[in-house]
Design a protein around this nucleic acid. Structure first.
Length: 312
DNA sequence: CCAACAATAT
DNA sequence: CATATTGTTG
């Protein structure tokens, strides 16, 4: 797959905004619990420079902070950015009600629901696009996305939905809105229905199986770089929903880690159903992408429930 | 055994 | 409906 490369590159360049858009970043998923636990209030100390060393490797953000007074600051403190109260944020799921804080040993703790924000989805689509549908399998996508905290399951689930979306689109585009049976499908891309999907253009090649040179080009894959590489403060990567109450952290400090050790990346390679993926390192210094959420920042801007598609 | 996928559950 | 979880298969 390396030599048969053709001009996909040209097309690629044409179509995509810029590799830089998806290249560098390891977005950090912060969990609300974590954020709250850390008290994300406005840092009175103007210590804006919260530069933290970004540990590489995906360390799961464990919800549930040890309420231990002398609890350590946590090595994996996630830098948290000023989240814009944009639309999706940790919309309260509504638990609460009374201060019935379950101090239960939150054994059986579960991970909060991942919310696929347009940015995240964007990355997802870009990753898939660049991988080619063939190689776009959950694990690979996940790795390419380099989103901290993202699990294979997350991606798999999203991918499943995405494939359905693509399928639907194919049908529509081929047969027209009036398409087969799906009377209601009248719209090609009903923002209301597709919401998220509508925010990112579906690369043409997605629609057909045979004509897409996937090849493995150099992937922008940015394995967690060195400790000094941190680009915090960017828009939020993804947000989680609040779920169970935390608080009652186990004094024992024993909770199971859903994903403790991950097979250090770099596992891509032929075999495992994965295509030969090369993670080519580019000497890029460090780009920042994302950034949007102008909602409150502008002052005038308000709400706008959905993000404008004006990203790509 | 792990990963992808499909189906099902929340 | 959007994700998560589970079951099955390769």
């Amino acid at each position: 797959m390396r030599e048969e490369d053709s001009n996909w590159f040209s097309r690629w360049e044409e179509e995509f905004p810029s590799p830089e858009e998806l290249m560098p970043l390891s977005q950090t998923l912060i969990t609300p619990d974590l954020a709250m636990a850390f008290d994300i209030r406005n840092p009175h100390t103007t210590n804006t420079a919260q530069q933290q060393h970004h540990q590489h490797q995906q360390q799961p953000q464990q919800q549930q902070q040890p309420s231990n007074p002398s609890s350590l600051p946590n090595p994996l403190q996630q830098q948290q950015q000023q989240q814009q109260p944009t639309s999706a944020e940790f919309a309260d799921s509504g638990e609460l009600g009374s201060g019935t804080a379950g101090e239960e040993p939150a054994r059986t703790l579960k991970r909060p629901r991942l919310v696929w924000t347009p940015q995240l989805h964007k990355r997802f689509v870009d990753a898939v696009a660049h991988l080619g549908i063939k190689n776009a399998v959950p694990k690979t996508i996940m790795q390419l996305m380099s989103v901290d905290g993202l699990t294979r399951e997350n991606v798999a689930s999203h991918l499943q939905k995405y494939r359905l979306y693509l399928k639907r689109m194919q049908g529509i585009s081929a047969a027209g809105p009036g398409g087969p049976g799906g009377g209601a499908s009248g719209a090609v891309a009903d923002p209301a229905t597709d919401h998220l999907f509508a925010s990112s253009p579906v690369p043409a090649h997605f629609l057909h199986p045979a004509a897409r040179p996937n090849s493995d080009h150099f992937l922008p894959f940015v394995p967690a770089l060195h400790p000094h590489q941190q680009q915090q403060q960017m828009a939020a990567a993804a947000q989680y929903h609040r779920q169970v109450g935390h608080f009652g952290s186990p004094p024992n400090g024993h909770f199971e880690n859903p994903f403790m050790s991950r097979p250090n990346l770099q596992r891509m390679g032929g075999g495992g159903g994965g295509g030969p993926v090369h993670n080519n390192h580019h000497p890029v210094s460090g780009y920042v992408e994302d950034m949007e959420s102008a909602n409150a920042a502008s002052g005038g801007r308000k709400v706008l429930t959905l993000f404008p598609t004006g990203d790509d």
